[in-house]
């Protein structure tokens, strides 16, 4: 029995390791290659050998070139600026709406909530073309506003806050009520401090979504002055087909931030997934 158990375990670990290799290779190979010269990548790719996978000489030259010759810093700044506006506005706007849904009774409450959730569940990609016409009609193409405005209201944030608010003990609110506190005091000083985990999870999700967003910024912000990082690296790939180390390094540098955020904050990502959709 123990032999069989040990064997099963060994097989499981072997399987897990194998899948890990598959999961990691498409990330690690580009990462390693971004520290090589173009010449080296090509040279060792004709016949398979150790140096096909492992650099002979490590160099961070490609990263230097990205900032020195191609000014990648402006794409980072653009992205941070856009996300920097979206995050606080979106969190406050959606949590305030969730507050209304969670703590008040009002006419049309249920249909309104259903309508909002349904509307927000239509993915942005599906309406990208008509939205582009709208933004174009408003004369906002190639401005920061075109990137910011459509992302401000967010259904998932609204939904998650309403779920979180339902778990706030009502006695706390009644106590503040007796003290004559305004709705804002209740919201800002009683309810929101209790929902910090939700706020962290939502900020992370919004950040990563915006960072990785592709189709919409591709349509709405094509000029270098407003281009965000994901569009910038894809355009860069199309313009510099031969410089593989540059393409690898630009890809890795844009992947770095979501990965760095994910590793320490893993549990918030997972809590968002688990409570957002699959309960019981």
């Amino acid at each position: 029995m123990t032999l069989k158990k040990n064997l099963t375990r060994a097989l499981l670990v072997l399987g897990l390791l194998l899948i890990s290799v598959i999961a990691l290779f498409p990330i690690l190979y580009p990462l390693v290659s971004s520290f090589r010269t173009d010449q080296e990548i090509y040279q060792y790719n004709t016949v398979f050998q150790l140096h096909t996978l492992w650099p002979e000489h490590w160099t961070a030259e490609a990263y230097g070139a990205l900032f020195r010759d191609y000014h990648f810093e402006r794409f980072f700044l653009n992205t941070f600026l856009v996300v920097g506006v979206i995050l606080p506005v979106s969190v406050i706007m959606c949590s305030v709406a969730a507050y209304a849904f969670a703590f008040y009774h009002f006419r049309g409450q249920k249909p309104l909530y259903a309508l909002l959730l349904l509307t927000f569940m239509v993915p942005g990609e599906a309406i990208a073309l008509p939205l582009y016409q709208l933004i174009n009609g408003l004369g906002l193409v190639n401005t920061y506003s075109s990137l910011i405005l459509p992302s401000l209201a967010n259904g998932l944030t609204l939904f998650m806050y309403r779920q979180a608010f339902k778990d706030v003990p009502i006695s706390l609110l009644e106590a503040s009520d007796l003290d004559g506190a305004s709705w804002f005091t209740c919201y800002w000083h009683v309810v929101m401090p209790l929902c910090v985990p939700t706020t962290i999870a939502m900020c992370l999700m919004t950040f990563v979504n915006e960072w990785n967003n592709y189709l919409w910024p591709l349509l709405a912000a094509r000029k270098d002055a407003v281009k965000t990082i994901t569009v910038a690296i894809t355009a860069f790939k199309e313009e510099n087909v031969v410089h593989w180390n540059l393409i690898y390094s630009s890809s890795m540098i844009s992947a770095l931030i979501p990965v760095l955020l994910f590793l320490p904050f893993q549990k918030y990502f997972v809590s968002g997934i688990a409570s957002g959709s699959v309960k019981g």
């Binding site: 999961a23 498409p26 994901t230 690296i233 894809t234 890809s251 992947a255 979501p258 994910f262 893993q266």
Partner: peptide, 24 residues
């Protein structure tokens, strides 16, 4: 650790993943 490793590709954006795959 395995869970994190399996989740890692999710954090990479689709455009970056597409670029890496197209080159590999």
């Amino acid at each position: 650790a395995f869970r994190s490793v399996f989740y890692l590709p999710v954090t990479i954006s689709m455009p970056v993943a597409a670029i890496c795959f197209s080159m590999i």
